[in-house]
Structure formats: C-alpha cells, structure tokens
C-alpha cells in the first residue's frame, strides 16, 4: 500500500468539494430562493442563508387553479406519451431484435430512426402546429402527447433494442419449440424479462416529456399548457416574483430527481441511446 500524504487527501477533498459546489450550488440557490421571503431575493450582497424560511410560495402555487391545471396537464401528457411510446417502442424493438433482416436493411432502419431524433424539433414543430390545428388537436393533451411520442420514440426503440438483445437467443428458440407464435414469445417470454429495461426506458421517456418545452409552447395555449411553458411565461408575466418562480422550478425538479436517483444505475445507458452499458 502506498502511503497517501495528508496534503494529497486535502487536495482531493478540495477538488470534490468544488465540483459539488459548482453542480449543486445553483440548485441550492433555487431551493433557498423558493423558501425566502420575497424581500430577501434581491439584496446586495445576496442572502445565502436566512432563518425566515417559509413554504408560503408553495402554498400559493398549489392553491393557484391555473398551476393545478398546468400540473395536471404535464402529468397527463407525460403519462400518456410514456405509455404510448413504450408500447409502440417495445413492439418495434422486439420485432427488430428478432427478425432476420439483412444487415443493410437493419442498419438503414436504425440509422433512419436515429436521424428522426436528430431533426431539430423546431423544424417539425411549426408544420406540426398546422397539422394539429387541421386535425382539431391543437391545444389538446392528446395532440401534445403525440408530439412527445414522436420525440421519444426513436430513443425508446434504440434503448429497448439493447434490452431485448440481451434476452438469450436460446430462450427464444426454446419458446419456438414449445409452440409459441412470435406474439406469444413477445408477451410471455421476452416482455417479463425486459421489465427492468421497460421501467428504465419509461422513466427516461417520462422525464423527456415532463421537461419538454418547445412543442408544448408551440402546440398549446392554455387548455393543454404544461409546467415548462408556465415557468417560461413567468419571465414575462411575473418578473418580480422570484420566490414563486423558484418554487415552481423546484416543484418541477423534484419528481424527476426522485426517479433519477432510483435509476441512477441505468442512466448512462439512457444517455447514450443504449450504445454504452454500464
């Protein structure tokens, strides 16, 4: 064993502490601002700590019928989009993983799916707005959910493909000999085994939909408006209510943070489109 000097240990502690500070201080600031009295949000020098903490901003937010409405919309859109995208995505991923496509066809398909994710959403958003309007889906939860599915589906297919490919081929073969059609192999053999993958993918799809702003801004006005749009509109409308804005930001971050901690182990896989396994 190498004797590590005290200085080295201190240096490392310092490096760690500064990384934590850079990453976490803004979040600390957000949470603190949400709990501060309004008058302490704009002081010089800034108020880094105060005893006068209160949940007043949260109470006001949660009692606000508009915010309740946006919150329910956010939740409804995210859940609807997640269920749809994971259902369609797992069917497609399973089909791709078990079909003997030629290398070129398979690769072409996957690259195409990848490219659909590369399209800048703004390019699709404006035509989407026209389409949704003519389909009567403008400013509806369903319309926004469909838009979100189009954003998450390529990602979900890629991610789930990796999970399905991890199911040993011999299991698939055993099920074939047991007399299962492909449909039954999907339901009764593969799906139960990729449940962890489905869970992780769902969480990612949920987070993407929950945080999505551009489509929500373009496709909705009030009926189907979601929290990210609400917080963005605060900038214009309630410029001075920093505590309320910070409280809303915190409220939006909390559910995402909880699930992120739950799936921490799988995060890398999600981040890389499934290309890297941890």
């Amino acid at each position: 064993m190498r004797v590590v000097s005290f200085g080295r240990t201190m240096l490392r502690a310092l490096v760690y502490a500064s990384i934590v500070a850079v990453m976490a201080f803004p979040i600390y600031w957000l949470v603190l601002t949400s709990l501060k009295p309004q008058r302490l949000t704009q002081t010089r020098p800034p108020t880094y700590w105060t005893d006068q903490l209160s949940l007043g901003a949260y109470e006001r937010l949660l009692a606000d019928p508009d915010i309740q409405h946006f919150f329910i919309n956010s939740l409804a859109v995210a859940i609807l989009a997640t269920i749809t995208t994971v259902s369609l995505g797992s069917l497609a991923a399973y089909s791709i993983s078990r079909t003997h496509l030629s290398y070129r066809v398979r690769r072409g398909l996957l690259v195409w799916i990848l490219l659909t994710r590369i399209f800048p959403p703004i390019v699709i958003a404006i035509p989407f707005f026209t389409i949704m309007r003519s389909a009567g889906l403008a400013d509806t939860v369903l319309g926004l959910a469909i838009a979100h599915v189009s954003v998450t589906l390529p990602f979900v297919i890629w991610l789930l493909l990796g999970f399905f490919q991890e199911v040993p081929n011999e299991l698939e073969r055993a099920a074939m000999l047991d007399g299962c059609s492909m449909w039954r192999r999907f339901w009764q053999v593969n799906l139960p085994l990729v449940m962890p993958g489905i869970a992780v993918t769902s969480i990612f799809a949920f987070i993407i939909s929950w945080n999505e702003y551009l489509f929500a801004a373009v496709l909705t006005s009030f009926n189907a408006q979601t929290l990210p749009v609400a917080i963005a509109s605060f900038i214009g409308e309630r410029r001075l209510e920093w505590t309320t804005m910070a409280a809303l930001g915190t409220l939006m971050l909390m559910p995402v943070m909880v699930v992120a901690l739950l799936v921490q182990r799988y995060i890398v896989r999600g981040l890389t489109f499934g290309a890297v396994k941890e």
Partner: peptide, 23 residues
Amino acid sequence: IVRVAMLLPFMMAPVAAGVLWRT
C-alpha cells in the same frame, strides 16, 4: 456525493435552468 450532485443539473428542465441562471 459527487455523483449525486452531478445528477442535479441535467435532470432539470432546460427552461427551469434558464430561469434559475437568470437569477
């Protein structure tokens, strides 16, 4: 602790991050 702290920034909705950094 470093790893958990690193989860925070990118889980945040970019719109919310924008508001936060404005302050």
